Computed example of a mutant assay.
Amino acid sequence: MASSSRSCSSSENRNTITLTSSDGLTFEIEENVAVQIKTLRMYLKDLPVNQRKFLVPTVTGDVLAKVIVYCKKHAENPNRDNPNYIQELKIWDKKFVNENDQYALYDLANAAKDLKVKPLIDLTYDTVPNMYELPLRSIRGILPKRYDIEFKKIVAFNASLNSNDVPNNVEEAIRDPKWKKAMEKEMFAFDKNET
């Protein structure tokens, strides 16, 4: 993306609110979308139209864009009492969360919590636990095969750390040729960097 600004507004004659993400991306959203975000709703009534700019320091641009898409879909709600529309919205919500992997969904849940978007909080928090399956009782506590090699490397590394003797003082370090060479390299680096 060449620009650091995204526009989520289809009309310029309506009241818009500018949101800036933690990574500097800016979004212009209409007021009916912004009121879906409780954190903004608290301030909108008191601010003049020309001062409706908010920094969202805890949410990155890609996650904020998803929150805005969600709020925009829920703001365009033409008939909240129509059972068909409610069913369509539930299907859209399910598709919306299923498009994300568990990490993106976790970020989305945190953003919804920070911005106080209650329906999105409920949706993400209901979905996250379903993404994790518990192992069968018979294999709980047994590492999967893919971890065996890494686990063995970690055990070997820890053993090598414990087997190396670390000198307690300078005299002991000077007596060991490896430590003496390491100290000479360090002093050379200090001289070279003039520190």
Rank of each mutant, 00 (worst) to 15 (best):
L115I: 06
N162Y: 05
I91D: 05
S163C: 05
I174P: 03
N100F: 15
E171V: 05
Y85T: 07
E88I: 00
V128Q: 02
D107P: 11
Y132S: 09
F96K: 00
I142L: 12
W92Y: 15
L115W: 06
D122G: 12
E150V: 04
N77V: 03
D148M: 09
S160L: 08
K73Q: 13
L105R: 15
E150M: 03
E99Y: 09
Q87W: 02
D126S: 10
N158C: 12
R80L: 11
D107C: 15
K118N: 14
K152I: 03
L120T: 04
K113T: 10
R80V: 11
P135D: 11
K73H: 14
Q87V: 04
L115T: 07
D93N: 14
R137T: 13
A104S: 13
E133M: 13
A109M: 15
T127S: 06
H74R: 02
R175D: 10
T127G: 01
R80E: 15
K153G: 00
I149G: 09
A173Q: 03
P129F: 08
H74E: 00
R146E: 13
Q102H: 03
M131S: 13
F157S: 06
A156C: 04
D122M: 05
A112Q: 09
I149Y: 06
N168T: 04
K153D: 03
Q87N: 12
E88Y: 03
K153M: 01
K95H: 12
Y106P: 10
N168R: 02
D93L: 02
Y125K: 07
E88A: 13
I154S: 09
F151T: 12
V117E: 05
K118G: 08
N98D: 14
K94C: 09
P144V: 06
P83N: 13
L115Q: 07
K72Q: 15
L120E: 08
E172A: 11
K72T: 14
M131K: 08
I121S: 02
I149A: 14
L143E: 10
K153N: 04
V166S: 04
Y147R: 08
K73T: 05
L115A: 07
D114R: 09
P129K: 06
K72M: 13
P83S: 12
Y147I: 05
V166K: 06
P119C: 04
L123F: 00
